[in-house]
Measured scan of single mutants.
Amino acid sequence: MPSETPQAEVGPTGCPHRSGPHSAKGSLEKGSPEDKEAKEPLWIRPDAPSRCTWQLGRPASESPHHHTAPAKSPKILPDILKKIGDTPMVRINKIGKKFGLKCELLAKCEFFNAGGSVKDRISLRMIEDAERDGTLKPGDTIIEPTSGNTGIGLALAAAVRGYRCIIVMPEKMSSEKVDVLRALGAEIVRTPTNARFDSPESHVGVAWRLKNEIPNSHILDQYRNASNPLAHYDTTADEILQQCDGKLDMLVASVGTGGTITGIARKLKEKCPGCRIIGVDPEGSILAEPEELNQTEQTTYEVEGIGYDFIPTVLDRTVVDKWFKSNDEEAFTFARMLIAQEGLLCGGSAGSTVAVAVKAAQELQEGQRCVVILPDSVRNYMTKFLSDRWMLQKGFLKEEDLTEKKPWWWHLRVQELGLSAPLTVLPTITCGHTIEILREKGFDQAPVVDEAGVILGMVTLGNMLSSLLAGKVQPSDQVGKVIYKQFKQIRLTDTLGRLSHILEMDHFALVV
């Protein structure tokens, strides 16, 4: 994948999101292997301009796509893939009243899908469409860049269908997702969380590099694949309309690839034109409109599966009536509230959605109805927002919020430890010299600072030695090549209790 991002070429006709291997024109390309080798690009942008032909009021008969309808489940399912879809609609009884809503608040519980998330729908649909058009064949390999849930859905379907599955996901995604993927037989590649989507090191860039190296491999490409919004247009939206008897006044959905909100909203605009569509985008993402909503100094966020630093091709923002931004604290607070007060075992993005819903639905009156999409299960986040310690460490809970008995030293300040200034190293000294210094002084790690004293990161003896043994660096290389740029900081005025929580999850903390 090139470091400079080429513009994806656009073909003359058809839909841009065809499933299957992508040609340089962004659509299915038939021909000899030699032709494909000559024409197939190194990668295709996940934010390529959409060429979708959908228009409100256009006859369904003019759609270029294969459409399906929700099917009634048999008493005995032939395999677990038949437990994807037909998820329950559940009334939220307490939270709406707590925040003064007059309307009825309903939750579409997508964590009841077989793999635990709304992404099971698009995973199965992308595979079925690729099999139907002859792209996927027995023994082929599926590769997908994902925040985890699409990966789980694909790995689940691949396990049943017999495909090899490789999932490329950023490091910030939970260990629970990784464990589930491994249990399903998927191979996992992790990428830096802070890598831009168009960087060769991003999950998108690495996935395309693997595709170019592995024979008979395919990126189904949830960011561009029409099967993504079509899955929701054909099934999720129809289920909502049936469950609500066609009567709903507002739908609120958090947005990642945009397939969920695009597919549902398009069908609702056709069948229930008075329904307002509300999009939820986390602070630090750029999906919301108008652009002024996205202006923030924050560039990272903890909530998973929603928000991006690019506009995915499948996201149709014209069908969203209003956007709201959400933050991590309210997302996790509301997710825990949904679990504790409503018994809905949902993930953090569901918290984002409901946090926005109780604001947006203030305009609705008694007798009206708001539906929220709860995308995934708490299963993926047992060591994250479900953990009091994690919430404390991230600053989303305060010590006084917890009532468990603490040891005698818990409320003492870090400054009472009488710490001395640490050994520091410059980023320009060599790895070999740094190892000598650390061994001589008896230290395992040291902060790396520039000549102005600005902290650049941390270097550890173990990481340097393993990097040297693996051949990633040489003793003569500058130590700046092996620094940890993500590390926890703590102030002298913070409590030892807070430091204790940090050290339970990290090997060190830097006192500043």
Rank of each mutant, 00 (worst) to 15 (best):
S3G: 10
S3I: 02
E4D: 14
T5P: 08
Q7V: 14
A8P: 02
E9G: 13
V10K: 13
G11C: 07
G11S: 13
P12V: 11
T13D: 08
C15S: 08
C15R: 05
C15L: 10
P16D: 05
R18T: 11
G20F: 10
P21M: 10
H22C: 12
H22Q: 09
S23D: 09
K25I: 12
G26R: 10
G26D: 12
S27E: 13
S27P: 04
K30R: 14
K30D: 14
G31L: 02
G31I: 02
P33S: 11
E37V: 15
E37G: 11
A38G: 12
A38H: 10
A38Y: 08
W43A: 11
W43L: 15
W43F: 15
P46Y: 00
A48E: 02
A48K: 10
S50W: 06
L56D: 13
G57C: 11
R58D: 12
E62L: 11
S63T: 11
P64D: 08
H67Y: 01
T68M: 02
A71V: 15
A71Q: 12
A71R: 10
K72V: 10
K72D: 10
P78R: 02
P78V: 05
P78Q: 09
I80E: 05
I80K: 06
K82N: 14
I84A: 08
G85Y: 01
M89Y: 06
M89W: 00
R91Y: 15
N93M: 05
N93D: 11
K94G: 14
G96Y: 04
G100A: 09
C103T: 02
E104L: 05
L106V: 11
A107Y: 02
A107P: 06
K108N: 02
C109T: 05
C109I: 04
F111W: 01
G115D: 07
G115A: 12
G116D: 07
S117I: 03
K119F: 00
K119P: 01
R121E: 03
I122G: 00
L124H: 11
M126R: 06
E131A: 12
D133H: 11
D133E: 13
T135A: 12
T135L: 12
L136V: 08
P138I: 03
G139S: 10
G139V: 01
G139F: 12
D140P: 03
I142S: 00
I143M: 06
E144G: 04
P145M: 02
P145D: 04
T146G: 05
T146K: 09
S147M: 01
S147V: 00
S147H: 04
S147L: 00
L156C: 01
L156M: 07
A159F: 05
A159I: 03
G162V: 03
R164I: 03
C165T: 04
C165N: 02
C165W: 02
V168T: 05
V168Y: 04
V168W: 00
V168Q: 03
K172W: 00
E176C: 02
E176H: 02
E176I: 00
V178N: 02
D179P: 04
V180T: 10
V180Q: 06
A183R: 02
A183D: 03
A186G: 06
I188H: 04
V189C: 07
P192K: 06
T193M: 09
P200Y: 14
P200W: 11
S202H: 06
S202V: 01
H203K: 03
V206T: 09
A207C: 06
A207I: 01
K211S: 05
N212Q: 11
E213A: 11
I214A: 05
N216E: 08
Q222H: 02
Y223D: 01
Y223P: 00
Y223R: 00
R224Y: 01
R224S: 02
S227G: 04
H232V: 02
Y233N: 08
Y233C: 02
T235L: 11
T235Q: 11
A237I: 01
E239V: 03
I240T: 01
L241T: 07
L241S: 04
Q242K: 15
C244D: 00
C244S: 01
C244L: 05
D245T: 06
K247W: 08
M250L: 15
L251P: 00
V252P: 07
V252Q: 07
S254Q: 06
S254A: 04
T257Q: 01
T257C: 03
G258N: 02
G258H: 00
T260N: 04
G263T: 01
I264R: 05
R266W: 07
K267V: 11
K267E: 09
K267Q: 13
L268H: 00
L268P: 00
K269C: 13
E270A: 11
G274N: 10
R276P: 10
